[in-house]
Design a protein around this nucleic acid. Structure first.
Length: 1171
RNA sequence: GCCCGGGUGGUGGAAUUGGUAGACACGCAGGACUUAAAAUCCUGUGGCCUUACAGCUGUACGGGUUCGACUCCCGUCCCGGGUACCA
């Protein structure tokens, strides 16, 4: 009876389905093994032969582990939310749910035909409410958690709120030590916290939540109408569709994956994952350890004078006015300050209005500006010359803590050289004339006696700085005046958005920090401050200038003496402030030009050196040398501080920049040839570097950091390249974010109201006003009145935890039961494409760690072992149309004509010979095609490309199954080569594995529905063949080397055939060995062998050493490393005996004479004779 | 540019720890069976030189370590993947 694969495969697929053969359940006490494939997105094109490659491998592992007695979990499902279905919906109006279901049905049909042992009772679809209910649930958990930097784990936001209301918040405490929070949230006391409005609290908490809303720079893809995460953008275009992507600031939900950067990095070490994936994640996280260094800007006489005149006394152009507007403001927050300043101007308090009018009508001889940013503050009224600030204090200043803040603010303003006068509302409203007199007197005093900033801020008036410790003169003086009050302007003004408001905290920790550093520095004369060292002699000429700093981040503090310029990103806020008059127009031009460039342009122009001198200089922190400040596009505003100290001698980009603009290149680390290129290596001895001379790089880095910290001009710092993940999509076909807005405050819906089901809408486009499609759902409101968030989650949301849901996929009460997750733990073997290295695989690790922190699951990593299967590429076929005609020329003759290559469907060009008649019928416009043949054939061109519908090179597994059967397909895909390797699909060779099955079938001698096998005891030779194979198959599957396993089967079959083996005791175990690879085939034989139970219930055979022992070995005898002949010798012989036997052999004489120099004997391996 | 892989017959690939390079399969050639074909089975198959035996050569290229190197080290070239002015 012949091998009839169609009949067999139908029969067993039905049997498995009817008997639920692959249903898995928790069996306590039984060891488990969890095999997971990355679940597919069900695309309209269906499966091609590339898809099953990984599924077949994991199916083999599952079946093998079952035979080895493991309780195997091997589920499958669909990553069913996604863009293609939605794009199709936009075009046709067809609901994406319908498209998705059709595609799933098709996928399922194709998968079933390949004979996988998936437990379909656990199927999940991310787009179904029963599933995404729990995705939303995790989101709520993220929203309600923050990352404690002291314990390094996520904790409940409620606990944080409790801390705030009892102890307040101060960013210097270890649990808050992340750069973002330090920058974004000002310290506050518990009383202040309790006094804050709901909105203020909400805004502050958003800075802590792991899922948060903020104004963030996003990748906006206009063509797709949505934002994308960083990993969804490749080369400046969207990964799906290849549409251009631009940077844009948008209010946006994000997940704080950066909080986990360090854990995601360190835990990689313990994962059995491909090095390439681990390395890709390391690079993506991009940890770099270095130090910040502050460079003091040397005031530019000429430019500042001119600027002063321009803006204060003359009709200033808008540009210079703009410049003047923020010459004292904190550069990083200027744009936010400006907005807030504008808003305050539009909404003055009554007292402010009165004072402003009074100042304007009275000619005091001094010019005042309103709501003028200085550092991170916006004082109410500012006179720039002399420097005086007038503050109108509202009721909020009654609070003790606010007085502290006022003290900080005073100190800060003093630092910039401003005197501060404070008035209460009543003072102004009751007696404005008196107020004006006080102001006028003070101004005149200041005008006549203006001390230098050195004297004021640093030297003589140390007490002013001490006032930072909450006891300044002005504070005391004012505090006694505080009584009742009308509302303060901050409260009176309309609520700005969170991002705007978060900067308006009345104190700025960062500057406070640097100030105290500075104070320490200068109040002790040793070591000398940069000012004293570098600029001491010029102190008198400094006049009443403010001091500005450029902060840079560097990983090479050792090279600090090699700095020859400082480079700012074009978007850096200091650019406008420090640029001298002379260079202003050139700088503006440069900045504008670079801002107009798209992300794409900037990326393609990489390595083109461009830059512009600003005319400004900074002082070297150690030598005091004058260092020019440049702007360069190669400096990125989003990384580090947006400024670099350029060391051309030891950084490639700085080197190119310096060469291009003819800037000095100073060697500070010996070992390279700087005339040729930058010496970037982190080894060598420091030279030209003062106190670092003679040290090696490692020691110099250490010493430099120490010195920098000692002088308070910077501190050790760690930067990550990883950014928080954009989580909202302006799209319909995704999980609704379970958030509603009450009075503008985002709140999560109650867990008991989950799932928040995707509402039905009439159209899937964005609304006319540009809102996401969900805004079309008119009556879609929480509790009938609150608006829901209208963005949806990104494609990777559902896949970030699906491995957990499979453990307990039908649970309506929990996302996964404790029992299930404690039993199945984590994935033991995970198989999928390498393209997910920095996307899915990072997100799923992040979510896993988060759920672990919340004690919801027992493992902190999703998968122990990961393998990436290679891609199976397609071989495309091309025809060559002669330009401007309907003539097609064969591949070999195409060079004689001007042609255009067109893809042609590989089904009408078998073996790349075009079927010209089918080609004419293929598409309407080829109906009248003419051909120029080679010989009597039309030969198509061939090229290996990604298998894709649009390239007409897709091979459907159904066709292969139709012709050869599923078992042949399974064996063949495994036989193609190593699993991880990519390779083009070719059916050359498929007959080899198909033949193997047919020959194996014959070995079983089937007649009349039974195997006619002998029950005799097998021979030693037969046993040896069998046990050798068991051993090999076992070893190979354990190391996922499936191609060599197939060849082991073939060798086994060849040898058994040679032995004419028909012994049941040999062929039964052989059948079991084969069953994971060719399950239908093995089931049928198993049943024909008389077994009533499925072969999946069998046990994997155990190989026995005793059958494998060899008595003899044919030693290859080599002379000078070249094998000359072979001798059979007993393996029992010792080294010496082997040597004796070889030396006395007849054959040796043929190859050598005399005595050998040396004889190497490796027992059981080889003998080498050196002559 | 940087990081990670890889380069072996006509083809896919094997060689697991430095120990017989090319397993297994495809293809090709020859043969058997057959009226013939298909199917099946047998033999051969890296290159060069030879009737043959043998010999020489050979794992991208050039060096090195070693009794012995596809395997380890140094340099060069090429291919694939990741990443990109990340300081």
């Amino acid at each position: 009876m012949e091998y009839n694969f169609r009949e067999i495969e139908d029969k067993w697929q039905r049997y498995w389905r009817e008997n639920k053969s692959y249903k898995s359940e928790i069996v306590s006490g039984k060891k488990k093994y969890y095999v997971l494939d990355m679940f597919p997105y069900p695309s309209g094109a269906g499966l091609h032969v590339g898809h099953p490659l990984g599924y077949i491998a994991s199916d083999i592992v599952s079946r093998y582990k079952k035979l080895r007695g493991f309780n195997v979990l091997h589920p499958m499902g669909y990553d069913a939310f996604g863009l293609p279905a939605e794009q199709y919906a936009i075009q046709t109006g067809q609901h994406p749910k319908i498209t998705t279901e059709q595609n799933i049905a098709r996928y399922r049909e194709q998968l079933d035909r390949i004979g996988f042992c998936f437990d379909w009772s656990r199927e999940i679809r991310t787009c179904e409410p029963e599933y995404y209910k729990w995705t939303q649930w995790v989101f709520i958990k993220l929203f309600n958690s923050w990352f404690n930097c002291a314990t390094k784990k996520a904790e409940s936001i409620d606990e944080l709120i409790a801390v705030f209301s009892t102890k307040g918040f101060n960013c210097s405490e270890p649990q808050y030590l992340t750069g973002d929070i330090e920058k974004a949230v000002a310290p506050f006391s518990s009383d202040e916290w309790n006094a804050k409005s709901e909105m203020e609290k909400s805004d502050i908490l958003l800075n802590f939540r792991l899922a948060y809303l903020s104004n963030a720079m996003v990748n906006w893809c206009p063509a797709l109408g949505t934002v994308l995460a960083n990993d969804e953008v490749k080369d400046g275009v969207s990964e799906r569709g290849g549409f251009p992507v631009e940077k844009k600031i948008m209010k946006q939900w994000s997940l704080r994956i950066t909080a986990y950067a360090d854990r995601l990095l360190t835990d990689l070490d313990e994962l059995d994952w491909p090095d390439s994936v681990k390395e890709a994640q390391r690079n993506w996280i991009g940890k770099s350890e270095g130090t910040s260094i502050r460079f003091e800007v040397i005031p530019n006489e000429e430019s500042n004078d001119q600027a002063d005149q321009n803006s204060i006394y003359n009709a200033a152009s808008p540009d210079t006015k703009e410049l003047k507007d923020h010459r004292y403001s904190d550069p990083k927050s200027y744009s936010h300050l400006k907005k807030f300043s504008r808003e305050n101007k539009l909404n003055p308090t009554e007292a402010e209005e009165v004072l402003w009018e009074a100042l304007r009508r009275t000619s005091l001889g001094f010019k005042f500006r309103r709501q003028y940013p200085i550092s991170k503050y916006i004082p109410d009224f500012v006179c720039l010359d002399p420097k005086l600030v007038i503050e109108v204090d509202g009721g909020i200043h009654m609070e003790f803590s606010q007085r502290e803040n006022d003290a900080n603010k005073n100190a800060e303003l003093n630092f910039y050289g401003f005197e501060v006068l404070r008035f209460k509302n009543e003072e102004i409203l009751d007696d404005i004339e008196n107020v004006l007199i006080v102001i006028s007197n003070r101004l005149n005093e200041l005008k006549n006696n203006s001390p230098s900033p050195l004297e004021r801020g640093l030297g003589g008036e140390a007490s002013t700085l001490e006032s930072r410790d909450f006891s300044s003169e002005s504070t005391e003086q004012n505090s006694s005046d505080f009584k009742n009050d009308s509302s303060h302007k901050v409260q009176a003004s309309p609520q700005p958005s969170p991002a705007e408001r978060e900067l308006v905290g009345d104190s700025n920790p960062r500057i406070s920090q640097s100030l105290s550093d500075f104070k320490n520095d200068s109040s002790h004369s040793n070591p000398p401050s940069p000012l004293e060292r570098g600029l001491g002699g010029e102190a008198s000429t400094l006049g009443n200038r403010e001091t500005l700093y450029i902060e840079v981040f560097t990983t090479r503090p050792d090279t600090v003496f090699g700095v020859s310029f400082v480079a700012l990103a074009p978007e850096h806020d200091l650019v406008n402030i420090i640029t001298s008059a002379e260079y202003r127009s050139a700088v503006q031009e440069y900045v504008e030009a670079s801002s107009k460039k798209s992300e794409r342009e900037r990326q393609t122009e990489v390595k083109k050196v461009s830059g512009q001198f600003t005319g400004a200089y900074v002082a070297h922190p150690f030598t005091g040398a004058k260092i020019p400040v440049w702007i360069g596009e190669y400096v990125l505003v989003g990384y580090g501080t947006g400024a670099v100290m350029a060391v051309p001698g030891h950084d490639q980009r700085d080197y190119l920049f310096a060469k291009h603009f003819n800037l000095p290149i100073q060697e500070v680390v010996s070992g390279g040839d700087l005339a040729q290129e930058a010496y970037v290596a982190k080894e060598g001895v420091l030279v030209n570097s003062d106190f670092l001379n003679g040290l090696d790089v490692k020691a110099a880095v250490k010493k430099a950091i120490g010195e920098i910290e000692k002088r308070g001009i910077g501190k050790g710092q760690v930067n990550y390249r990883l950014r928080d993940a954009a989580f909202g999509r302006q799209r319909y076909w995704g999980e609704p974010i379970p958030i509603f807005y009450e009075d503008g405050i985002p709140k999560t819906i109650s867990e008991t109201d989950l799932p928040l089901v995707l509402p039905e809408i009439d159209k899937f486009q964005p609304t006319e006003s540009g809102e996401p499609p969900l805004a079309r759902a008119a009556d879609w409101k929480y509790k009938g009145k609150f608006n829901y968030e209208t963005t949806t989650m990104p494609g990777w949301a559902g896949s970030s935890w699906y491995f957990l849901r499979y453990m307990d996929s039908n649970n309506e009460k929990e996302f996964v039961s404790k029992e299930a997750v404690n039993y199945w733990q984590q994935v033991d073997f995970y198989l999928g494409g390498a393209e997910h290295a920095t996307g899915h695989l990072l997100y799923v690790r992040f979510w896993t760690k988060f759920l672990y922190d919340l004690n919801l699951i027992p493992c902190k990593e999703p998968a122990k072992k990961l393998i990436n299967q290679g891609m199976i590429q397609g071989v495309s076929a091309f025809v060559y149309r002669i330009n401007g005609s309907n003539k097609f020329v064969s591949e070999g003759l195409k060079n004689q004509y001007e042609t255009t290559a067109l893809h042609v469907d590989i089904s009408i060009a078998p073996n790349h010979i075009l079927d010209t008649e089918k080609f004419k019928l293929w598409r309407e416009d080829f109906k009248n095609a003419e051909f120029i043949l080679e010989g009597d054939q039309y030969k198509c061109g061939a090229e290996v490309e990604k298998m894709s519908k649009s390239k007409y090179n897709v091979v459907n597994p159904d066709d292969i199954i139709e012709e050869y059967g599923a078992d042949t397909l399974r064996l063949y895909e495994m036989f193609l080569g190593p699993l991880e390797q990519s390779k083009p699909w070719s059916t050359q060779g498929i007959s080899g594995v198909h033949n193997f099955l047919r020959r194996a079938w014959r070995l079983f001698q089937i007649e009349n529905g039974a195997c006619k096998l002998s029950d005799e005891t097998p021979s030693a030779a037969e046993l040896k063949v069998l046990h050798k194979t068991i051993k090999k198959v076992e070893e190979d599957v354990e190391r996922f080397s499936f191609n060599t396993t197939i060849s082991a089967f073939m060798i086994c079959l060849n040898e058994l055939s040679d032995l004419k083996c028909n012994k049941r005791q040999i062929l039964e175990p052989f059948t079991i060995l084969l069953s994971p690879y060719a399950p239908h085939f093995a089931e049928e034989l198993w049943s024909l062998l008389g077994h009533k139970e499925s072969i999946t219930k069998a046990s994997f055979p155990i190989w026995k050493e005793e059958y494998l022992v060899e008595n003899e070995f044919e030693y290859p005898i080599s002379i000078n490393g070249k094998v000359k002949f072979k001798i059979n010798l007993s393996l029992q012989l010792s080294k010496e005996e082997v040597e004796k036997n070889v030396m006395s052999s007849e054959e040796l004489g043929k190859f050598m004479q005399g005595t050998p120099k040396k004889i190497i004997v490796v027992p059981g391996r080889i003998v080498n004779i050196v002559v």
